[in-house]
Amino acid sequence: MNAFRLAGDMTHLISVLVLLLKIHTIKSCAGISLKTQELYALVFATRYLDIFTDFISLYNTVMKLIFLGSSFSIVWYMRRHKLVQRSYDKDHDTFRHQLLVLPCLILALLIHEQFTFKEVMWTFSIYLEAVAILPQLVLLQRTRNIDNLTGQYVFFLGAYRSLYILNWIYRYFTEPHYVHWITWISGLVQTLLYADFFYYYISSWKNNVKLTLPA
């Protein structure tokens, strides 16, 4: 464990807590894409299949449980909770996320490190996570006013993977044979997808104006 990776995990945790805070306290999911939340639940479900078979560390297991629990409860809130549902913008959250799941599954079947069920599922989760934010970014483009909590949620979600890139660079130079091209390329693609959001988010923060994305 290095500082970049710990910072990445904490940033990821903060993004999830910000979202849970928003939904649980003010009972609102305004501006949040249910499609992205469902994709993230699928990412964690397929990535953490080894949660009961491979024990890495207490930290690793606890964090996996937190990410699984939070992502599924967020989907439950947005699908089942009457009050939260009222603020869900289903008319604009129309990204066909099946178009993301199938290509990632096919790609995982073609390009993976080992052809086993768990490894293919893990690789699928890596590819899917890279594109899971797309429905959310599309929704932000469509809804004019982005409230602070939603902006912070997306910002921390993007920041965590860029910290992971620093972690991979660090591990590449400090651990012999530490090479994971699949994770590295997917992580880079994932971070690049946030590039324009980061640009508008930081410039809105610098100019102290409301975050609005260009149409």
Partner: peptide, 10 residues
Amino acid sequence: SEPGDSHDEL
């Protein structure tokens, strides 16, 4: 690490 090692990252 060898390909297919148990993945130690989240």
